[in-house]
Each structure stands twice: as structure tokens, then as C-alpha cells.
Write a protein that binds this DNA or RNA. Structure first.
Lengths: 190, 190
DNA sequence: TATGTAGTCTAGCAACGCTAGATTATCTCA
DNA sequence: TGAGATAATCTAGCGTTGCTAGACTACATA
């Protein structure tokens, strides 16, 4: 009987719609506009239904964040593809900032809002590793301790994204800052 | 008559107590525990009194953040004092991370939570400039475009602080990452 | 056709930021 | 000194939030 399967499919589809609605509302009106009641309206069900999918509101944010980690990994890999050495570093750095600044709410879910995602440990989900590894890949040719260098590279990019997003550094010299970071990564190698 | 002066003093003292209470609670239990009712209890007044001091809850966070900007400027200047060149860069970088990681709630108010503070423009308050200038001072010997280099240096430090605070990078290799950033700043000069 | 089970909804709790309007304390001036 | 104006403060409550207990409904099994 395919009844159970159909129900499973419908349930999964509903969950997808919750996550998609949360993301759209967050990107359009900010995360404070993403309320349980609003999401319930959006999927045309009552509020308790949301709690049969997610433990609480934070878990919904986490689900959106996870989507973001999958997407940024793809974006970074794409950016690295076809180029090597210094150019690869620059392309990846630029892609990272583009991603962060074009999807501010998504990036916020990934890095700012409280989530239950685990990092930097053995049980870190592969989705969360993928982006890090894309950064590591382009950094590798230039350094001895890849792990440390990648963490520093990542931190620089995250800092640039956050400070620019919150209006603390000048938007019009972004490429100069990127150039500086790229030069630092490349120079640290020799 | 000193009556008006006494009242002004008492009012200022009460405002100080509100800010101090907010900071203590935030540092102990997180910013979500900092509610208007809780602060009103703490200063032994009713809630509306708080709104005679601050426009809304965000303004209280901003006041705490401003305190943080004053303190970090002092910490960075102290760290730079007495050393020069490469050592000064390293001391300031270390002091920045120590400050951020020892006062997580304060740092969060300064950089993460929504506030009405203005940055990177003509009417930026001097308190907000001071820290930036302390960073600029130690970077200056090593670069042509000081403004851009300082922004990048700041971004790297902020990224390191944030990623470590949120458990995304390994705490036990902090000094290696700092060394790398310092090397990058120094190398970018020549 | 009766019974058990999953799924969903209605209704409401406690806590939140914030505020209108009543109340109390303080100052001014005849 | 006492009456009226002004300023400071409080009580009480609005609308909204995340979350949930308990009622209800639809469906599968016997």
C-alpha cells in the first residue's frame, strides 16, 4: 500500500514549505518577522503542526541555516573551479562575500542566530564541513598548517562580511580589502 | 539651590545602575534574560521609569555597547603601549581577542545585537572611533593604505573572536592563528 | 459496525515590550 | 501657610510572542 508513503511525502513537502516560508520572510522582513503564527498561516495549518516538525523556533532557524551551508559550499566550489593558485583564492574570497551580502538573513541564520548546530568536532555534520573544505582546498598550496590557515582565512572573510553588513566598514573599498587578504594568504606560504 | 543638582545626580546614578544591571545579567544569563521587568525589579522602580531614561530596550543595549567601546579602546591602547613594530601588532591582536572572549555579552552588544550606533561616517561618535584608531596605530608602519589595512585587520580579529566564541574553530590553537594574522599584517608592508 | 490510534485544532498560559491614565510627591506663588 | 500647577512615578492593561494541554476528527483495524 502506498498510503503511508504518500503521507510521508506530504509530510516532507510540508516541512519543506515551512523552511522555505521562514527563509523568504526572513530575507524580506528580517528574522523578527518569522513567528510561529505567521508560518502557520503561510502553510495553512494551525501552530501545533509546526511543533510536530520542529522542536522549537530555533530548530526552524537551524534548518534554514543548514540549507545555507549546503548552498555556500556549492558556491565556493564553483568559484574555485577552473582557476588555480592565487586566482582561486581571490575567486573564493569574492564568492564568499557575495554569498554573505546577497543573502543576509540566510547568513545570519548560519552564523549569528542561536542554533543547535555542532561545529569543529567529530560529530559535525558533513554539510557544515563542506564549505570549510572548499576554503581549505584553495589555501592548501600556500601554507604548512592547512587547518590553522583555513581557520584564519575563514575568520577574515567572516569578519569582512559581518562588519560590512552592519555598516562598520566602507562598502566601496571591498575589493581592496579582498586583495589584501588574498595577498596575505599567498604571502604566508613562502 | 542644590536641589535640582541633587536630582540630576540621582537620576544619572539611576541610569548608571540600569546599565550596570543590564550588563551583569547579560554576562551571567545572556541577553534574553535582560527584560524590562527584570531591570525594573533590579533598580526597585516600576517599568515606565526605564522608559524615562531610554527610548526602548535596544537603547539600553546600545548604552552597554558604548561602555564596551570605551573599554576596548583603553585595552588596545594599553596593549600597544611600550612595544613597537611587530610586537605591538601581536599584543594588540591578543588583547582584542582576550577582551572579546572574556566579555562575550558585552562584545555581543557591541557587534551582534541591533543598536542605533552609527559607524564609518562623519557623525560617528568618538568612542566608536577610538578602538579603530588604536588598531590603525599599530598597523600604520606596515602598509600604504592604512584605512583599508586597518579594516582588514579588524575584520580578521572580529572573525576570529566570533568564530571562536560560537565554537566554530578550535580554541586550543588560538595563538597560532594570531601569529598568522600578525605575520600577514607585517608581510603586507614590504 | 465498534474501537483504537494518529493527526490536527481550539483555546489559553505565561512572559514579553511598551504605554495610557490615575496617583502621589514636589515646587511656585499669592 | 495654604492652593494650584507641575513633575515624577505607579498601577493596570494592551497586543504580541513561543509554546502546549486537552478536545476533536479522520482513519485503520478487527
Amino acid at each position: 500500500m502506498g498510503i503511508a508513503e504518500r503521507k510521508d511525502r506530504q509530510r516532507a513537502e510540508r516541512e519543506r514549505r515551512i523552511i522555505a516560508a521562514a527563509r523568504v520572510i526572513a530575507e524580506r522582513e528580517g528574522w523578527s518577522a518569522v513567528t510561529i503564527r505567521r508560518l502557520a498561516d503561510e502553510i495553512e495549518h494551525s501552530q501545533p503542526v509546526l511543533y510536530s516538525h520542529f522542536e522549537n523556533r530555533d530548530a526552524i532557524v537551524s534548518a534554514v541555516a543548514l540549507e545555507g551551508f549546503r548552498e555556500i559550499a556549492v558556491a565556493l566550489r564553483d568559484a574555485a573551479n577552473g582557476s588555480t593558485g592565487r586566482n582561486a583564492v581571490k575567486n573564493v574570497a569574492t564568492a564568499y562575500l557575495d554569498f554573505a551580502l546577497h543573502n543576509p538573513a540566510l547568513y545570519q541564520a548560519m552564523f549569528i542566530l542561536p542554533t543547535d548546530l555542532r561545529f569543529a568536532s567529530a560529530e559535525t555534520k558533513p554539510e557544515l564541513r563542506a564549505g570549510f573544505e572548499a576554503l581549505a582546498a584553495v589555501v592548501t598550496p600556500f601554507c604548512a598548517d592547512v587547518a590553522v590557515a583555513t581557520e584564519a582565512f575563514w575568520a577574515a572573510l567572516h569578519g569582512l562580511a559581518e562588519l560590512e553588513r552592519s555598516g562598520r566598514i566602507r562598502p566601496n573599498v571591498r575589493s581592496e580589502r579582498i586583495a589584501l587578504v588574498v595577498r596575505a594568504v599567498v604571502a604566508s606560504g613562502k
